[in-house]
Amino acid sequence: MSDPKPFVDIRHAQKSYGDLEVLKDIDLSVQRGQIVAIIGPSGSGKSTLLRAINDLDPLTGGEVWLEDVQVNKKLPHRQYEKHINQVRQQIGMVFQHFNLFPHLTVRENITMAPKMLKGLSDEAANKLAEEQLEKVGMIDRIEYYPSRLSGGQKQRVAIARALAMNPKVMLFDEATSALDPELVEEVNLVMKKLAEEHMTMIIVTHEMGFAQSVCDRVLFMDQGVVVEEGPPDVIFRNPQNERTRGFLRKHLEGANGH
């Protein structure tokens, strides 16, 4: 919090569905290169908060800033669409269910957006796809269709697809939750690699071990509020709040049960 200019800044985020308030006045500042994990029980609003960052789930109140641009600024529809498409190019997002485009090959999944939005030539886009696939260890599957990949492979391609837009920040929405346990590690390794390259990342996760080893900061959310936040060592070893303790206890028991 010492750096005066946050990279991603969420101010007074509020979100309601009718009478149900799912985010209650949340502030979150992320510095460039920082890696933040958001943990909490399902229904706590953590995914909603993450999805507000690129305005996939628009807030009903509050502001989201990426550097000096307000993501969710009020504009007439057409202008807003132009603005948000521009902003989203700079925010990579990885989903729980991968959301690869099944009618396109791995290569085409990655080259589509850079070609359409950045006007890259076929040659340049192919080179970019190869670089990104090299990075996630999927270069040998470049001509495959997603249906022929395992979950872990799909997620690695989805990460490569997001990285190909050269984003300023990466959002991970339970990126490993849908994976068979033995496939989680390969995705975690890719994310660790990004961490080492100082990619700014905001990670919604159920994996406490991963959050602890990779993240600079952990937020524990429950019922639409940030209950506790701090460095992983404090949150995991010495949580101050009773709700945090209860959640971690249950979660670690659950994890041990596997």
Partner: peptide, 30 residues
């Protein structure tokens, strides 16, 4: 067509129209 497809396309920065044309419609055709 799974709504995650539209979301993923929009997240990359495609407009609604571009996402429809390149991602959703080709799958809907099938």
């Amino acid at each position: 067509v799974d709504k995650g497809q539209m979301e993923a396309a929009r997240t990359l920065g495609l407009s609604k129209f571009q996402a429809m044309r390149k991602v959703v419609l080709p799958q809907a055709m099938r």
